[in-house]
Design a protein around this nucleic acid. Sequence first.
DNA 1: CATGAATGAGACTTCATTCAT
DNA 2: TATGAATGAAGTCTCATTCAT
Lengths: 200, 200, 200, 200
Amino acid sequence: MARAETAAIDKRRLILDAAVRVFARQGFHTCRVSDIADEAGVAYGLVYHYFSSKDEILDTLFLERWNVMLAAIAEADASQLQARDKLRAIAGFIIDSYRHDPELMKVIIVEVTRAANTFGRTHLATIRDAYAQIAGIVARAQAEGVFRTEITPEFAALAFYGAVEQVLTGWIFDSVPVDDEELERSKTLIVETICRGLEL
Amino acid sequence: MARAETAAIDKRRLILDAAVRVFARQGFHTCRVSDIADEAGVAYGLVYHYFSSKDEILDTLFLERWNVMLAAIAEADASQLQARDKLRAIAGFIIDSYRHDPELMKVIIVEVTRAANTFGRTHLATIRDAYAQIAGIVARAQAEGVFRTEITPEFAALAFYGAVEQVLTGWIFDSVPVDDEELERSKTLIVETICRGLEL
Amino acid sequence: MARAETAAIDKRRLILDAAVRVFARQGFHTCRVSDIADEAGVAYGLVYHYFSSKDEILDTLFLERWNVMLAAIAEADASQLQARDKLRAIAGFIIDSYRHDPELMKVIIVEVTRAANTFGRTHLATIRDAYAQIAGIVARAQAEGVFRTEITPEFAALAFYGAVEQVLTGWIFDSVPVDDEELERSKTLIVETICRGLEL
Amino acid sequence: MARAETAAIDKRRLILDAAVRVFARQGFHTCRVSDIADEAGVAYGLVYHYFSSKDEILDTLFLERWNVMLAAIAEADASQLQARDKLRAIAGFIIDSYRHDPELMKVIIVEVTRAANTFGRTHLATIRDAYAQIAGIVARAQAEGVFRTEITPEFAALAFYGAVEQVLTGWIFDSVPVDDEELERSKTLIVETICRGLEL
DNA sequence: CATGAATGAGACTTCATTCAT
DNA sequence: TATGAATGAAGTCTCATTCAT
């Protein structure tokens, strides 16, 4: 029984991981459910045993990852770090996510957060949760007199997240892979550019 | 004769303008060619008399607008303004474009520049032309000793354009329309945030 | 007035001749009416001034040519030649038609006489007129005791015409053009093969 | 399991057989894929489950049958029969094929072997394989001194096959069905006409 | 759990023909 | 006569989802 359950969980995971590779390679709309099944090495219909629709696969992938990120932001927020270092931790987390699993991040960004007309719209509220948390960090830094108040926290959050996502998008479609050095440097550049603009 | 010619030109324009409204309302993939024809008040086949495919309609809309923007960037770049004011002019141009025709800008951003897997990929080089020009402005400002050199021009361009696009994306999916005051304030915020981070 | 009429006749001919080239090159079903107009160097709609439909163009080309052939067969039939020489004259006429205008013959054969489901069906009766005339020649030769009566005239006509058409079809789709010598030799081969089988 | 497999095979066969009836009745170009599905009593999409296109259905029907014919020709060729009897066996096989399934032969001839601009062109090489095998029989008969050498084997094959196909084409479009007696007599007529012309 | 055959709605594109000028 | 813009019907193919085994 436990064995069977484990096997079942494995198949579900197998399908999700295969979906990441297929979505990253072909795009969500261009791939067929059978492509995912083939990549996972399972039969066509089994996908529908674990997921109610093709959409739900992407929803699952997005929410799994986004919730981890929200937790990471919350953790940074709750820490004793300076505002600048909180933002650096967040940028660092996102960039390290890309380093660790570029295909997954490609799917999240290309198919969800930037896909304003489809999944981006569906998950708009969830996506904005991240902006709101970042805005909270900025607002508190302003209240503490560390950041200047000319920039609204909401705008600051958009600019910060927008810069990070734009940088990742650039990597995603670059023909040459990014080396670790550039990944690290980018963390600094983001904080140097955005935070310096925010600080007194 | 001149009338007939004008009428012909008008029909093509009629279709393009209808397409903007339909794409903005329903999204490129969700709408049918017949929706565009209906919106334009012309027969189905006429769309194919002027455009070889549904894709070509969006390509045309994008290139028309993007070339105007590239020209605006080039003009700002060629001007005698300070680097910060050049960037402000560019941000101002994009935001004013949104004020003037929010539906068109929605289509450009949602269906092309952020649609990394479809049209964004097709027009990647053209889109990057804009980044490159902005990077050029930054690079020259660095050479003149106005901007500090810690931030690479390419990164600065990404952060700048990313912030602008992110702000517009926010407006595009806001439930309440943006008032002119916020549009103006945003120009300042972008420049205040990003340029201040770039300046010595 | 006479000039205008002449010009009109020329345009009609121009379109017919262009149609031969286009049909031969692309096939009737694959080409568009605009291809014919382009080839003729006239405007789209003018084709419909002279012909009521695309079909009528091919009908016209076929009937023009087929009537000439029927006349040639009738002439051979009416002559004082031996049956074998009458058949040789007919085979000779068809083969010379190919030599003179291979594109036209290609169109007639490929698009009409062999196109059993489309124009071949429409013109079935007219096509069979030719078989009937040839059968008549055979029947008379049998009555005169020159051809043996074991072969029915109808069958003989089919075999004779079938052999000629098959040979032409081979040339039509050969990659190398046929030289005059082979054209001439074929006339002999057809008569040698078929007539010898028919003669006592 | 065996039952399920058989059922799967049956559906494919069901579609092919339905296609023969529909192609024979309406012609390949005039019928729609839905007509085939309806005739087979299956869903539209199932046709595309088994065949990648409408074309592939006809290709399959043609190749299935043509390969059987090539095998029959090869068998006749390999036999100990006289050349004349080999050719009689081939003509007999084709005519019996028509007797057994006139609709299929109609489709093969009308839509493929005589459709020079479409499928006939696609399968030109395969069609010519038959001519070549027949020519081989003639050539060997000439080498053995049974057939005279004035007629080239290639020409003889064209004339022979052309006569057979022409006769079948006649039947296909006759308003009255052919009786068995005429079918049998035709075998004799073909051999009598063509072979007699070939023999010494 | 697992399979993959079966379903059928949906949309793009083509192009012959018409018609206003 | 001559033009070519305008019309709109028609059909192929795709693919997410269901379901019997």
